[in-house]
């Protein structure tokens, strides 16, 4: 009966989101929120989308630390890319590399590919099982990606999902 539990979980999460976003707590508004929650749950059940994957997950502290670290990386490479944009000679050397993703789960690989794309200077172009094709703006960005620092950190936070 895990399906029923997943459905209830989803309904509670949706209603909590409604309460958080609406800010009005009159009976009419609460009734409307309940109605729309029910509508969404019915639609999702009919489309047969309820499974482990769309459950609202709790965010663990180590993920928060990873986000902070990622934010610092994003800040650094943003400064670099912004300097290259404003430089009159456009000092860029675009190249394409393939990197290996050492994550075991699909979610881990998605996190890795999205982190690479989120950092300016590297964009994931294609994913094929466990190799990623990455377009890098400069040679420096490509070599720092090849060092595999992000790969290691995503592997570290992966097993707690």
């Amino acid at each position: 009966m895990s399906k029923l539990r997943h459905t209830l979980n989803l309904a509670l999460f949706l209603f909590a989101t409604w309460l958080l976003l609406s800010g009005h707590y009159t009976p009419l508004m609460l009734a409307l929120g309940l109605l729309s929650t029910l509508l969404v749950v019915v639609l999702v059940t009919r489309a047969d989308l309820i499974d482990q994957e769309n459950q609202p997950i709790l965010i663990k502290p180590s993920v928060l630390f990873y986000w902070l670290w990622l934010g610092r990386e994003i800040y650094r490479s943003n400064i670099d890319v912004a300097w290259r944009i404003l430089h009159p000679a456009l000092p860029i050397s675009p190249n394409i590399i393939t990197v290996h993703a050492g994550q075991k789960t699909e979610l881990g690989r998605v996190t890795y590919a999205n982190s690479i794309t989120l950092i300016p200077g590297t964009v994931t172009m294609d994913v094929d099982e466990d190799t990623l094709i990455v377009h890098a703006l400069t040679q420096a960005a490509a070599t720092s990606l090849k060092n595999g620092d992000i790969n290691r950190r995503v592997c570290d936070i992966e097993d707690i999902f």
């Binding site: 994003i74 800040y75 943003n78 890319v81 912004a82 944009i85 456009l90 860029i92 675009p94 794309t117 989120l118 950092i119 300016p120 200077g121 964009v123 172009m125 377009h135 703006l137």
Partner: peptide, 16 residues
Amino acid sequence: PDFYTRLHAVSVCDTM
């Protein structure tokens, strides 16, 4: 100069 490098500029806009 080309499409793939422009994506990096869009990244700057979207994140920072």
